[in-house]
Design a protein around this nucleic acid. Structure first.
Length: 170
DNA sequence: CCCACAAGTCGCT
DNA sequence: AGCGACTTGTGGG
């Protein structure tokens, strides 16, 4: 269930479709993959009520998203992980350290956060990741370089990885 | 509080 | 290659 707070939603047009960014007062709280029917972007723009600082974050987010979609590293806006568990935050922070073009296995992430056996839980954390692409959950592969899964759709994972020149097993 | 599930991993066949 | 056992965090009853 989603306790909806007052979030500002702003669209980010890319060549892959229109992403939707949600901002809280603390930072970027959620990023959505393009909605099926990419309708009016302005449906979500609330330009007049958007605080200056959020506009600034949004600009950063937009740049970051496009760069990362192109397989490049980029500076990220502040991320708001309020309400998430410590475990998830640790896992995501760990993923942020992965450079474009590189991968880690779920096991490596688990080990990095000092819970070597929580591999499966790491998978869960990935799925719960509210900010795909920017938090590179797609760079996590299974131990034998297999794809694993992806909540946002495996197609995305595949193309994102290919785009970064990452090889993986079928 | 207990129970079932998940984007894993390893060992055995 | 395929199948099952074991593991941990999380969400629902």
């Amino acid at each position: 269930m989603f306790m909806k707070r007052n979030l500002v939603e702003l669209p980010i047009p890319t060549r892959d479709g229109i992403f939707l960014a949600h901002y809280s007062k603390k930072g970027l709280a959620e990023l959505n993959f393009p909605v099926g029917s990419a309708r009016r972007a302005d449906q979500w723009t609330l330009r007049r009520s958007v605080p200056t600082k959020i506009k600034k974050w949004h600009r950063t987010t937009e740049t970051a998203l496009k760069k990362i979609l192109a397989g490049k590293k980029s500076k990220l806006p502040p991320l708001d992980w309020t309400g998430k568990t410590e475990f998830q935050k640790s896992a995501w922070k760990q993923m942020l350290k992965i450079s474009p073009g590189k991968t880690k296995s779920y096991g490596e992430v688990a080990t990095a956060i000092k819970n070597p056996k929580a591999v499966r839980a790491v998978g869960g954390a990935c799925g719960a990741n509210p900010i795909p692409v920017l938090v590179p959950c797609h760079r996590i592969l299974a131990a034998n370089k297999k794809l694993g899964g992806f909540s946002g759709g495996l197609d995305w994972k595949r193309s994102l990885l290919k785009r970064e020149g990452i090889k993986f097993d079928v």
